[in-house]
Nucleic acid binder design. Structure first.
Lengths: 227, 227
DNA sequence: CGAGTTATTGACGAGAGTCAAACAACGTGG
DNA sequence: CCACGTTGTTTGACTCTCGTCAATAACTCG
């Protein structure tokens, strides 16, 4: 999920016990080799046994499901530092694909769960992560239930912008995914995403510098329009 | 969440460790007094500090959020045996209200978390519950993203029907919530819910016996129409 | 039985989807 | 370095599903 999902271990302040011992969920992956994954390639497939979990070291990953005849839903994006599949119990409930060229590490789910079960430092962090993911999913349900196209885009942009590292310089937002990904994440079509972004530019909320860069012209207005 | 949320401790088969020791998450609530909650009354309010968790002992509870000017989203229903707020870390992220007359037990969040942290039997069950809630939230995201009104209603009915105890006799489904609740859960309006149910009756998928009872005329067709 | 709530049905409109075409960005090879 | 094909994005015209508003019908509960 994209929603305020700044997993604590990412930006230097592992919480609570982990801080004392110097351990965090991230450390479970440290021994695993770095694997490159080219943009568009899958890390795992929906329905397969979830034998491994992944940590995104670099790049962006999308979680998606296909229903019926080619309808795709993106249920979340994962950024550098985040763990893919923390909430899995048996099979993969999604296909995970690299949005950009990525580097990942993998550990077996068994190893991960054993480490978490054994370590008093890791467990609270893991539980916090699960709680956070559930909360984020609820936020997304609200967006998909009741927000119109404009509110969805503003929420998306605001959440992206809140992510550390998303703005190379203040007010300049890098958007790593393409329009189709955004559409499938927000429950819209690519055309509606495009039209709505154009409209937001007319309204002087944003400026579309390139397809992967947005200037934030009016943060306050943007926030107001998220709901 | 409604989606396949048959929390394991409910119907007699607490999983794994808990089975051996006879302990389950339910047991954490056993010492608390039974409190009656009349239909429509709130158990807790969005934004308040989450000092307590609840177990629904009898009846049905809805979790809801209000955005903007009176738009209500129901993010989930909780049935007898289930725990309300398991994924909370600080404040309540929803208002919980009784859909029907309920009986509940409450424990302080601190007590709950301490018990879970202390018990090797409870922890896996708690983690499984969190994983399950996240998975269910993802299913609901798919529904809200890409399914049309008919598919949403069929999914809802099928999920409700899969719940143990929902059918007093086979093929007869009790629907504890009113049309507005269903609408706000499925991201539709009350009129669309009503129209779609009428249409499903015309198509001989269901029969509307009363506003709280549905006869399931064609389970296979119903399943086909969930997606 | 009757007032109030909840559900159904109908007529209409708006927002987003669909289909199609133009346009821009990008990479490759000549 | 430019022509060209490929892919991704934007824009336009039209359609359709679902929302809105309004009236009627069916429950519910004193």
């Amino acid at each position: 999920m994209l929603m305020q999902n700044h997993q604590a271990f990412e930006h230097g302040k592992p919480a609570g016990e982990a801080a004392k011992t110097g351990r965090s969920l991230s450390s479970v992956f440290h021994l695993s080799a770095l694997e490159p994954v080219a943009a568009g390639k899958a890390l795992c497939w929906e329905g397969d046994a979830a034998k491994h979990l992944f940590q995104v070291v670099e790049g962006v990953v999308r979680l998606q499901r296909i229903i019926g005849e080619g309808r795709r839903v993106i249920t979340g994006f994962h950024f550098a530092g985040e763990i893919v599949g923390a909430f899995l119990q048996g099979d993969f409930l999604f296909t995970a694909e690299a949005v950009t060229d990525c580097k990942i590490r993998r550990v077996s789910r068994k190893t991960f769960q054993d480490e978490v079960a054994r370590s008093d430092a890791l467990r609270p962090e893991y539980i916090a992560l699960l709680c956070h993911e559930t909360a984020a999913a609820h936020d997304q349900m609200v967006l998909l239930s009741k927000k119109n196209a404009e509110e969805r885009l503003c929420s998306f942009i605001a959440t992206l912008a809140a992510r550390p590292g998303a703005q190379p310089r203040p007010g300049l937002l890098r958007v790593p995914m393409n329009r189709q990904d955004i559409a499938d994440y927000l429950g819209l079509t690519i055309e509606t995403v495009s039209r709505t972004l154009t409209q937001l530019e007319r309204d002087r909320v944003i400026a579309l510098l390139s397809t992967r860069e947005i200037r934030l012209c009016n943060r306050d207005l943007l926030e107001d329009m998220t709901c």
